[in-house]
Computed example of a mutant assay.
Amino acid sequence: MFRSHQADMAGIPGMFGDGLMHWHGVSRALATHWYHVSVKRRIDGRFVSSQEMLNDEPKLHELVSAQGDDLQIDYVQVVTPARLNGTATWRMERLKSVSMGFDRNDCPVCLLEVESGQIYNDYHEDGFDHGSLRQVRELYRAPV
């Protein structure tokens, strides 16, 4: 999850709209992947672009399911820690698809296919074969 310190709050709650708060900074305590989503929302008859930073697959699925005449997703990027992407640093890459399945212990596993064709997973053991997952369900696929 994202977190923030009260000192990072910009203004007072509600000054940017009912129920909204703005922050100068947020952080994450866990080194897990998250999603950076470019969206367009219809506001007062015109589309306005914004960025959503989503913590996990349920929030991504919620946003994908909400698409319609007043909300469009332009593209999704995934931000992955080094242990997921196999490099020395965090990376943000354009996402092709996200799927969820279950391992032999019925634990959920996320598969992330990025623009380069690489498929990352959030399983915590080396040598994991994503073909061994059961009940794999695609949650998001980028338009072609």
Results as ranks from 00 to 15, higher is better:
90 W>H: 10
57 E>L: 09
68 G>H: 03
79 V>Q: 05
69 D>H: 10
95 L>G: 02
80 T>M: 14
73 I>L: 03
112 L>P: 00
91 R>T: 13
68 G>Y: 05
67 Q>H: 05
93 E>A: 15
96 K>S: 10
83 R>A: 10
107 C>M: 11
84 L>E: 15
61 H>D: 06
90 W>S: 05
87 T>I: 06
100 M>E: 10
88 A>C: 11
73 I>Y: 09
81 P>L: 00
90 W>T: 04
87 T>E: 02
73 I>D: 04
109 V>C: 11
57 E>K: 07
91 R>E: 15
87 T>Q: 05
93 E>C: 13
93 E>D: 12
62 E>M: 04
61 H>F: 13
67 Q>G: 00
78 V>N: 04
63 L>T: 09
69 D>P: 02
60 L>S: 03
72 Q>M: 12
60 L>A: 02
78 V>C: 11
92 M>L: 14
87 T>H: 06
58 P>Y: 09
68 G>V: 08
71 L>P: 01
107 C>R: 00
70 D>F: 07
95 L>T: 02
113 E>I: 00
91 R>H: 13
101 G>F: 00
63 L>Y: 04
88 A>S: 15
63 L>V: 10
65 S>P: 02
111 L>A: 06
84 L>Y: 09
90 W>C: 03
105 N>A: 12
66 A>I: 00
86 G>A: 08
79 V>Y: 08
107 C>H: 01
85 N>C: 04
72 Q>Y: 13
114 V>R: 05
101 G>A: 01
99 S>H: 09
113 E>T: 02
93 E>G: 07
112 L>I: 09
75 Y>A: 10
109 V>Q: 04
76 V>A: 06
78 V>D: 02
64 V>E: 13
115 E>S: 14
89 T>R: 04
64 V>P: 02
98 V>A: 15
106 D>R: 15
71 L>S: 04
102 F>E: 12
76 V>D: 04
60 L>M: 05
93 E>Q: 15
85 N>D: 01
80 T>Y: 06
65 S>D: 02
95 L>E: 00
113 E>D: 07
71 L>H: 03
69 D>S: 09
107 C>Q: 03
